[in-house]
Amino acid sequence: MLLIHLNNVSKTFQLKGQSVEAVKNVDLDIEKGEVFGVVGYSGAGKSTLVRLLNLLETPTTGTVKIADYEMLNLSNRALRAARQEISMIFQHFNLLWSRTVHDNIAFPLEVAGVAKSERNARVEELINLVGLKGREDSYPSQLSGGQKQRVGIARALANDPKVLLCDEATSALDPKTTSSILELLHDINQKLGLTIVLITHEMPVIQKICSRVAVMEDGNVVEQGNVLDVFKHPQQEITRTFVRQVTDPDDANQAIEEQLREEKGTVIRLTFVGGDAGKPVVSELIRACDVTVNILQGNIAQTQNGSYGSLFVSIEGDEKQLQDAIAFLQGHQVEAEVISDA
């Protein structure tokens, strides 16, 4: 079932006579219950795009429909009510420092006019859900980044929203905390069936919890689709660069450079998708083509639609053997890309 529908949405900012087209003619459909990712570099227009969903920014053109709400036709009062069902978490958490954890989480309930006793019961529930028991009376300044984002998440869930918008929600956190927050979001998505729209400049975040992804560049959505498909067959150069954030860790490049300096073999990146990731392709390759294979670096990334593995090898052999080897690999549903020739 379709939950979010953007039709030809644009946003142009007027700034001192200059106009900035932050979002250009975007069409987007997001299904109920999915975790939808938007990836792009800084300035691509991602934040503007999410802010168009809850109308924190008004679109210059186009229409936004969320659930049954034709967002642009709502009165101010109806818009405020709708926003209680479309909550948001932020890169810098945006908690009220003057309120305790408990009172921060109670804020949206106060806004919604929930009675005090009910409010307290609900806050306690949420505190348990995000794993902050015992920290109710702390102030935000006494919490770590990860704990602050947990408060942000609890606060966002307070009024049982239909959609959770996440604007770089993990970008201010270290990798370990990022993982735990992503896990929490994933749990919430599974348990509550909450639709999540997640914005990031980090492809590993997309890989970990999104089922579909849109790539933004310069205000445009240049590519979108199932995460595994995008990993397998990136259409745009920018998408390839993002996919490499996951497949080519820094030490892979180091290993390859070293290999090149020693002038041995041809470095090839093998890409395995889904079930192939487990097959003994390399040993079969050595047997079938009689080449020497050095494994330089490998990793497997688990996406929500299946696993995606990459392996860097250097193959030593003559021209003919090399071509046979590549043909052999492709025959086994493995993609092989020559990175460099010695």
Binding site: N54, L56, R80, A81, A82, R83, Q84, I86, S87, M88, F90, H92, N94, L95, L96, F107, P108, V111, A112, R155, N159, L165
Partner: peptide, 14 residues
């Protein structure tokens, strides 16, 4: 903090 005001708006605050 402008972000906090924005957060309040996103929660439907009047």
């Amino acid at each position: 903090d402008k972000g906090v005001v924005e957060a309040a708006r996103s929660m439907g605050a009047n």
